[in-house]
Design a protein around this nucleic acid. Structure first.
Lengths: 344, 344
DNA sequence: GTGAAAGCGCTAACAT
DNA sequence: ATGTTAGCGCTTTCAC
């Protein structure tokens, strides 16, 4: 096991003190040194193949050049593009990111926050926060830079980057309305996540504004943003007494599950029931029927949140606007047709 | 910014020396202490909310409890399950993983290796290795535990976990043969990746064994494992003089691209041309036509490689078998039908 | 302009 | 059974 090259090795090689070497290698402190010695040191460092030890650096300076990224689950295709977006701004600046999956479990989330803190991350990007999330709130209160993505935490001043949920839901509702739908169900997301709650609020408000009165039995909330819950909730809607011609789902995976359940019941989308999604996750356009959905920014959201986090981290901590709302876009595909009849 | 609790704080609180605190908190060295003092220290640690500083620990012990994971691209759906498999064994043992994306670029890969080394990772799981990859070979030669996944590096003794490429290709070829196909093209993967080369070798060998003589113009190699290259290579095959009734592709994404190109040319899969994939990536079963493919283990491969890496890392470094070959499985879906006619 | 010395939080060899 | 000391590799006062 070849031992790594340290400042001491360079000092020995060049006959100067380690502190001089340290200064020579840092562009900021380099100025106070003779050009000649700087060059000699840089040459020796190069020759020996010196690589700074970020552990020692971090221990000394409290800056590890590492940020934590908390997401629910990387196998959820929504998150890889976000992660790459984050990386695209962090990596060129010398930051590495440590990605952890919470599976939306509070206890797991708590453990993982500790994993990140023990390793001295300079900040945390949290895309898996719960509406009420005391653990991360405390960490943020202690001064660790934290920004949440896609979701926000209530009653706190943690900055967040989210999508324009209201605009998305409203556009979709208008689109369905324009296609002739009047009895529109909402398959809502988990209400313990801000995304679920916000989209439900948006649905209520937008349907009011359009003059649709949506009976409460046409609104059902899922426990998780996944296909199984989409199936289960679609069943609940189908078994209710209220007829409907369209289901506006709080995300794509719920929509995919709902479509599957409809098919099991002998109902085809879009001809029998229109179904819409939210997010426009990768590969969605290859799945039949091609889902009409709201496209949110994914890669760009990652870039945005990373930039904001960097502002928060410093070197000179800037104030970051508490709220960033990213624009969304309606993507019309094949899962909506004009209504034929209402199914109860 | 509340400052973190250190061993010193606990020492002050309990009136013992920091080294005693250190010993009390480590199950291995705890034995040499009085039970009473151990309990007192543990209580104080708990009360003060002590969290060990893994940076300091790592600096001292050369073990950071962090492993590097190098993959080509997390947005490639093949990798998230692998990453979760790795995490599922590492995380319960207190390890964190640092994931980096190489985009199969050698220069980027080199930079990222340094990023990992600077942070003192205890080992590297490399799922993005090139057939010839001096950089990682050197790192491994210096004593850092490295295992490659899915791919292997040639002329080195780095342990690897790969799929049974030969069995997979052979099964698929037999299946096509059984369906009546005799003129079978191979859309090979990049030949600078062991996966691409191994699957091509397997195709040659298996077709020989089946008595098929495949003219060289029915074999074309892609530059990347993606849809665009699938389209491009399908075009090459279609424009060659040799007729064929089936394309055995080196992976699913190439197959998806090939099917798309066929469609552009007015050819339907499977009725006009059979197309097969490899990997069985997530969500593949939702995409029409549902691709007949070879299922490789993904989550399990991640688990396996993580376990092997742990053996290599220690505490008492075990010898790890150089080669691990994971079983594969034929998944028959809808992209293969008996041949109608051969297309040139 | 450069060297000396201290210390980040921790463990481990050595003392007692 | 516990305390003392040194040091991992680095930055940062403080001297000169």
């Amino acid at each position: 096991m070849k031992t790594r090259v340290t400042l001491k090795d360079i000092a020995r090689e060049t006959g100067v003190h380690v502190s001089t070497v340290s200064r020579a290698l840092d562009p900021n402190t380099r100025t106070s040194l003779t050009n000649e010695v700087v060059e000699r040191i840089k040459a020796a460092a190069e020759k020996l193949g010196y690589r700074p030890n970020k552990l020692a650096y971090g221990l000394r300076t409290n800056r590890t050049m590492t940020v934590g990224v908390m997401i629910p689950d990387i196998t959820n295709m929504l998150f890889p593009p976000i992660v790459r977006g984050i990386e695209s701004v962090l990596e060129p600046l010398g930051y590495a990111s440590m990605i952890v999956n919470t599976d939306n479990q509070e206890e797991r989330e708590g453990r993982l926050i500790e994993v990140l803190r023990e390793r001295g991350v300079d900040g945390i990007i949290h895309a898996a926060v719960l509406r009420s999330d005391p653990k991360i709130a405390e960490v943020a209160a202690q001064g660790l830079p934290v920004i949440t993505l896609n979701r926000r935490i209530e009653d706190s001043n943690i900055a967040y980057v989210i999508n324009d949920e209201y605009a998305g839901i409203r556009m979709m509702l208008e689109f369905l309305f324009g296609q002739g739908h009047r009895r529109i169900a909402h398959l809502a997301g988990p209400l313990n996540l801000s995304t679920g709650q916000l989209r439900l609020d948006a649905f209520r408000r937008a349907s009011d504004e359009l003059g649709l009165s949506v009976p409460s039995s046409l609104i059902t909330a899922s426990a998780r943003f996944d296909e199984d819950e989409g199936r289960r909730c679609a069943e609940v809607l189908l078994d209710s007494v209220e007829p409907f011609t369209a289901i506006l789902c709080a995300n794509d995976r719920l929509a995919l599950g709902a479509i599957d359940k409809l098919r099991q019941r002998g109902l085809e989308c879009p001809n029998d029931v229109a179904v819409t999604g939210f997010n426009d996750m990768p590969f969605l356009d290859l799945i039949k029927p091609r889902l009409t959905t709201i496209r949110i920014q994914q890669f760009e959201a990652g870039q945005m949140v990373a930039k904001l986090l960097l502002d928060l981290i410093g070197p000179l901590p800037e104030d970051v606007s508490q709220e960033t709302i990213l624009p969304v876009e309606l993507v019309v595909r094949d899962s909506v047709a004009p209504p034929k009849a209402a199914f109860a």
